[in-house]
Nucleic acid binder design. Structure first.
Lengths: 196, 196, 196, 196
DNA sequence: AATGAATGAGACTTCATTCAT
DNA sequence: TATGAATGAAGTCTCATTCAT
């Protein structure tokens, strides 16, 4: 219901505010320790507002996760559009992902949490499979061209994603900036490792 | 209180049983969704027993995490004891870690969860710093010998750990076995990436 | 406020639509489980409209009940107008009541519910006392004429009403029709029982 | 769960106390207006106690209704056991039912309410069918013996039950006593009406 | 030692009602 | 007039923890 409600501009703003505040609090405090009351108090609205815009607390987190993974994928797609060489596309994707990761450390934390409960893990599996599959395709192409060594492309893609998330989150400088050395380290770890 | 109690042999068995069952349930179901009642019902004891052996549910998880990280460190130390060459010690450590990871997927899930709440993250930070520092030391030695390229050793160690956890968990075959190809992929991704 | 508002023709139609829809839903679903939102959504108007026409959800039910009892009394009065003999008037009243009961099973259900909460029971007491008193008067007259045996007329009237409501509701055939055999059974149960 | 818990004597007493208090409050105040808090506060226990003994507020009412109908049936069965003549058994049953009705006005109110919501009506249908069927059997036998006039026995049984409930509730004198004149009126209304 | 009944704060959620637009 | 966003009190229910037995 709340899902399909037609929102006015002000409505959409409120919803976004709740979404943003909840994301921050969930990441800071943990999902369960953060109550719906905390959220609405923080935004300064009544408790009913929350349920006007969202079906439930669970559904809110699912939406945060789904949106985030969709956003990541869009970002990656845009980043690799310019290059044509698979290896260059791979590198561009990695760089974009790290930046995204550093700019969304809250989300990374939430994703980490999400894997710990089956209902959220379902959402994540769907979303992550897409992202990993995209990368795996590039790897396959690079393998076909002899650019990188053979091996299970999905496994490699998975490892790459792990490095990106970990470093992106751990070495974010705040306000979305990234330590450039970290980006180079990540790229190097991934690509030199892949090269034949 | 419960921490220092002197336990009989039967007492220690009970405690271990609770610990093991809780680990499994937390990993399957999530920490918060698993109630203390679930745990004691599953083990077939009364609720008082739980609070006889543990101060609180939180403290139980902290103990699980602490024990696990200590166990991992011990395992790694044993694995690298035989070799003397830093790079060989690194490789041995990676292989041992992956096996450990695959044999303890439950724990990896719990660790993932633990990072999402500050009180548990504290415990993890302490434990993981040790593990990562161990690896970083090896990397430094290898760098000094010119075996691998220069760079922030802690950052590299962090990336390695990410790959290990991810692949170890994702490609565990059940009952602690590991896909050998996966181990090779992980080692290769880590080491070739590091080599000059 | 809403009580005395002067309504346009369209206004009255809307109000009646709300009244009718609410009656049906309350009867089907129960009063409390049916929310004001259910009602306005079902009629296809905004929530403000509801509070334009009714002071509250409670007041709406009170009005439904009051209207219904008034309608029943009017129906009965019309039905017994033709006859002059008390016993014949009684019988005519019973027949009319049963038909009304069968045509208003929704209302009977709501009346049943109404007795379970004091504020509605107040309304019902007032309305039902009138109906029962009317019947009791007829009984008194019949007793005076020796047509039926002596006894507390109010009590007898009360029993008659119980039979009518029960059979009327239970053996309604839908769309207001009544099983003729049921009417005869009811009349017989009431009158033969009364006769000296 | 709560359903099957093995209760100590003290446990059963507590449960019964809650059951009794809830019945009274539901009857006085209405089911929905009476909150679980009202009940536990009234009995002077914590809120968790309620959910230790009952699965939900709904389930509690269902149990009240089921127990009551079972009790009524038992009472009726005991009352008619002595007589052998169908008509005498019928009369004995009516007298017993009225006494029961007068002694359980709270229940009658709750039953009335129960019919207004489908989930409770289900329970009632099952319970009442049994009671009505018992009576209908006696009627059939009496018809076979030519003691009362022909007609749908279930319908007649239904009408009898309506009279009993109505008069029993309305003319209860408190503390379970009954106006004897009322009992006679009820018996007379029912039996003289049935006689051929 | 052990049990499991009891506690009560607090979680999520609903909904009658109000009011800005 | 009409809408539907907003309010917030109140409802049902859970669960970590305590404690009498």
């Amino acid at each position: 219901m709340a899902e399909k409600r037609q929102l006015t501009r002000r409505g959409r703003q409120r919803r976004d505010k709740l979404l943003a505040y909840a994301t921050t609090r969930f990441a800071e405090n943990g999902y369960h320790p953060t109550s719906v009351s905390d959220i609405v108090d923080g935004v300064g609205v009544g408790k009913g507002v929350f349920y006007w815009y969202f079906d439930s607390k669970d559904q809110l987190l699912e939406e945060i996760l789904r949106d985030a993974l969709r956003d990541l994928r869009t970002t990656q797609a845009a980043a690799i559009a310019d290059a044509t060489d698979p290896l260059q596309r791979l590198e561009a994707g990695i760089r974009a992902s790290i930046r995204w990761s550093a700019a969304n450390t809250d989300i990374i934390r939430l994703v980490n949490f999400g894997w710990s409960e089956e209902s959220f893990a379902d959402v994540l599996r769907r979303g992550r499979d897409i992202v990993v599959t995209d990368t795996a395709h590039l790897i396959e192409q690079a393998v076909d061209l002899g650019q990188i060594m053979e091996g299970d492309p999905v496994m490699m893609a998975s490892a790459i994603r792990a490095v990106i998330d970990q470093l992106g989150q751990e070495y974010a400088l705040g306000n979305g900036d990234v330590d450039p050395e970290m980006v180079e380290t990540a790229v190097r770890m991934c690509l030199r490792g892949l090269r034949g």
